[in-house]
Nucleic acid binder design. Structure first.
Lengths: 318, 318
DNA sequence: CAATCAAGTGAGTATTTGCCCGTAAATGTA
DNA sequence: TACATTTACGGGCAAATACTCACTTGATTG
């Protein structure tokens, strides 16, 4: 007679119950307190725990006119397959506010497909925030591929381990790319990528039905730099060569042309091709990323975009 | 800035924006009012419009959520006073897993009452499992009544002696029903039930503030049969007459109508009445019991239910 | 053109919620 | 064991939110 149910319901279970009663069933905290047999204050704590534990996920399902307009104009200007613009909160400092929910919604849209699909993903803070907003699903028939290695130059795994977290949430078979982001040399990259199982992953990535990538800038606090995938010198070289941004490690200039040479000779990520016919969705926002996003759009490195209002406006004034 | 893209923001758009700022960005209505340039009251109206127009979608990402939704739907479908659905553990074969804890919790909730109460209980494996989960309490002011006799046709006491065990755990005065479950004849039932102290118990049972019963099926391995309260022939007769389940011995059909005649003429248990105003809580789970539970719910023989996820889903697909 | 009506607004008010803080229980430490 | 520290609890209160009501506006219509 021993089981996981014997244990008194964990605090999180209670929080889930309280959160459900509050947000879904519309009870007041007093009613919840009565139903759960606790004080009102405890009920309040449970509800707020449900929020802070990310049990509660809120989404807005409406094309706001202003954002619609921006989205249309962006599609027009850059020939995008699709574009979603979420409202900005001018007073919030969070970079991913709203974007994360929209990205998660887009991912879910694809994951709900009846047909088995191959979804490939990049990495970074933004994608990670999206994945954190995903709801639990059972997607055993789909396959998730990582476009980018997760090993830093010091051998540690990346802090923004998007693919593992993603696969965990949606219970999909997944294929991380056990490579450095940028190999030590051209030869090393060749050797690493010629391994049979790596070739298999690269091959799967090519068949992707949908791709989600973040867009990295190359300013002082470039993600590639902060995560120690490139050195400060390498960044300077890239800047001198005209680089404005990077996608899964591949650096490109203001027109979205992939750079020849420099670190691009050693990037071990899955190659990216402009003008892909399947959806390649860039998720990015922030004024610091304007030129990086603009470049990616101009070079058609991505054909879909999820961003926010403020960023969209900047992109259009560009 | 005027172009084909311009669309004046409709009220819903404003509502969407307000809802977004409120729920996603976490602004207060005052802040929203300022940002949208309207009064605080208007902001409040926009936010509530966003909810009532279903623009805002809240999800709870936790196994409990599923159960709460099922519970709500069951309440709706069968007009129940209350309904609790506990998670199913697909890997466990135990019928009472989780149910027992939930049932015990519900019992404790009532037993904690300051006012002296009368609680009546049926019998069976499920109720026994609930009672086994009860914590020791001191409930001398309450009274516990058995709804059903505990004597089998061979004179032995029932193996699932719920009431004694219950009273033992909570130290309450208790009133077992020293009768067979099903008398040998209509006359015998009359004689037995006319005894003064039996009448007293039946009378107490009528005053019950809360009632807990199991729900028995009438398949091959029907509890009534296994415990030798009825014979195999009697079961066949019942089935032919349309019986799908029984509560404290009273057999009923798929619509929850108590059968006329058959063993029901001789059942010595406390009578049960549909549409009771006090809580009558059925505790049952298992796919084998679906039609029995469904009948009990349709006929309002119980007005509250404790079951598990899998059973709840079946009941709703019915 | 006045009457009617639907929809929206702000003021006022009741209810609900968030949070501080002192106390009590649980947990960790010597 | 005794003591320190953390954790949880509930009372109380100010802030935030929901609701009611009387009024305005503007469109519709007989």
């Amino acid at each position: 007679m021993s089981s996981k149910y014997d244990a008194e319901p964990s605090r999180l279970d209670e929080a889930a119950r309280a959160g459900w009663l509050y947000y879904v069933a519309g009870n007041t905290q007093d009613e919840i307190a009565k139903k759960l047999g606790v004080s009102r204050q405890s009920a309040q704590r449970l509800v707020s725990l449900a929020i802070s534990a990310k049990l509660i996920k809120v989404r807005l399902d409406h094309p706001i006119a202003q954002c619609m307009e921006l989205s249309l104009r962006l599609k027009d200007k850059f020939g995008l397959q699709s574009c979603e613009v979420v409202p900005s909160d001018p007073t919030s400092s969070s970079v991913t506010l709203g974007i994360a929910q929209a990205g998660a919604a887009e991912m879910e849209r694809h994951l709900k497909s009846e047909q088995p699909i191959i979804m490939s993903v990049g990495t970074g803070r933004t994608l990670r925030a999206c994945v954190d907003q995903l709801q639990q699903m059972d997607c055993q028939k789909h396959r998730i591929i990582s476009l980018v290695g997760n090993i830093a130059s010091d051998g540690s795994a990346s802090a923004y381990d998007v693919i593992v977290r993603l696969a965990d949430t949606i219970k999909s078979p997944h294929f991380p790319l056990p490579l450095p982001v940028i190999a030590a040399s051209v030869e090393e990259r060749e050797i690493l990528q010629s391994q049979k199982f790596i070739r298999h992953i690269l091959d799967l990535a090519k068949q992707s039905d949908v791709t989600f990538v973040g867009i990295g800038h190359l300013e002082d606090n470039a993600p590639l730099l902060e995560d120690h995938f490139i050195t400060s010198e390498e960044r300077s070289d890239l800047i001198k060569a005209g680089a404005v941004g990077e996608i899964v490690g591949w650096a490109y200039d203001a027109q979205g042309n992939l750079l020849e040479g420099h670190t691009n000779d050693r990037v071990a990520s899955v190659p990216i091709f402009p003008n892909h016919d399947k959806p390649v969705i860039g998720i990015a926002s922030g004024i610091g990323k304007i030129s990086a996003i603009s470049g990616a759009l101009q070079g058609k490195l991505v054909n879909s975009l999820i961003t926010n209002e403020a960023t969209a406006e900047q992109l259009l004034n560009n």
